[in-house]
Design a protein around this nucleic acid. Structure first.
Lengths: 101, 101
DNA sequence: CAGCATCCCGGTCGATACTG
DNA sequence: CAGTATCGACCGGGATGCTG
């Protein structure tokens, strides 16, 4: 065994959702199941384009969202949650509720 | 109003629990309601003493845990969750479950 | 035992500009 | 429209050593 890290899996979860905008993106995709890049920009105005692209890429690599690219001009992409991503509903909505006090 | 940040409270929650060990600490305090500093060290061996002290201090400042100091030699402290902290149960346990696959 | 002080490095993130 | 490239500032966090 390589590393038993306190017998808890929270660290792995944290790594995947603690990116500055990841949980917000997931939250938005729960409410708007299919989003274009620009829609997410509007939904999360404080997140820069660069950051949005970065976080989306990581989320995709981690298998939490899928990206569908339409080969058209101008480009069009659509993002949505995978099943794995949807499973975070409890966590993300819990965060939202808790944050409201 | 200063900043409406996408009408969602997730960012605030994230700030309070995204410290590298905060959610793990909360998780441990859910299972072991009263812990000494050294107990937390044993429960979370990958977290250095420095980091543990730091995260505990921030959690305390954010009102998620309370610290009871016994004026004895050698020093003895006990940490436990506040109500506000306990309210994170859903989130933290959700993270644990999700992390297990 | 339960911390704090210091040094320091690598990753994170904003600003800005460019591209297919 | 949906990104990528580059630069630079900031700071989270590791290593180590000291203290009441």
């Amino acid at each position: 065994m390589t590393n038993q890290t306190s017998q808890c899996s929270i660290e792995k979860t944290l790594k995947q959702i603690s990116g500055k905008w990841k949980s917000v993106i997931i939250y938005m995709l729960l409410k708007h199941p299919v989003c274009r890049f620009s829609e997410l920009q509007r939904l999360i105005p404080d997140c820069s384009r660069r950051m949005l692209a970065l976080q989306l890429k990581e989320l995709e690599q981690d298998g939490l969202i899928t990206k569908k690219v339409y080969p058209v001009t101008p480009p069009k992409t659509e993002y949505s949650l995978t099943e794995r991503g949807k499973d975070l509903r409890t966590v993300v909505e819990g965060m939202q509720e808790w944050g409201k006090h």
